[in-house]
Design a protein around this nucleic acid. Structure first.
Lengths: 115, 115
DNA sequence: TTGACATATTCCGATATCGGAATATATTGT
DNA sequence: ACAATATATTCCGATATCGGAATATGTCAA
């Protein structure tokens, strides 16, 4: 046994540059695989494979239209991301707040006989 | 040639679960390696290795105190993350806005001879 | 059915990555 | 200098991952 999980979570799925590109290009809206291939100038099999990964973690959804498959974003699945980031931003803000009040305390001590 | 870059960017550094745990435990503040080892119940070499990765991408900073090394977060380096996420949230919001106005248009058409 | 088009899957080789164990490198105290 | 403590690095084996090429699957049109 050497490695635990895989690309099977949102963090890993997004960690890949090409996959981020694919997600980015889908911001414009639903796109067929061929369109993504053209837009990003990537080999079609690679695009399909990356779409598979993204699909497995639910970051994109497919819709079949004739012989094409239209992929679209599922931004709700970015939630784990948002949560994690929020946790750290909150921590950062709290630290800044503490620093603020610390600085204010210092300032108050600096003005002893003010009134 | 088979694989491009490595764990050398913020996204990949954060993609690893253990590394996220380490970052999380550092929210409480600066900690020595040994403390992290205790808190997360991980082998010391692993912690050191993960800290190395996090340090390389700048997500943590070290300070030497005697024979201990104190690590602390560098939350500013989460910026690429924030940016990317913001881009997608913005896109989502704009789509919701468009949907809103679309629905409003539909409603207006539905009330033709109002006055 | 056949052929063209669109997409997905499989196979492969190179390499990155992780965990584990052992070991190396400080630094402090005696 | 030596032992003890704290941390970092190296070596290893197992496996995951990526890109590329070839191929399979599915769908439409004639």
């Amino acid at each position: 046994m050497a490695r635990s999980a895989a690309t099977a979570d949102v963090f890993n799925a997004v960690a890949e540059g090409r996959r981020r590109e694919i997600l980015d290009t889908l911001i414009a809206g639903e796109k067929a695989v061929g369109t993504i291939v053209e837009d990003l100038a990537l080999p079609q099999p690679q695009v399909s494979k990356h779409l598979r990964v993204l699909s497995d973690v639910g970051l994109v959804r497919v819709r079949t239209d004739g012989r094409r498959r239209l992929y679209r974003l599922e931004p709700a699945r970015l939630e784990p991301f948002r949560e994690w980031l929020a946790k750290h931003e909150q921590a950062l803000n709290e630290r800044l707040d503490r620093m603020d009040s610390y600085l204010q305390d210092l300032q108050q001590e600096g003005e002893p006989g003010d009134a």
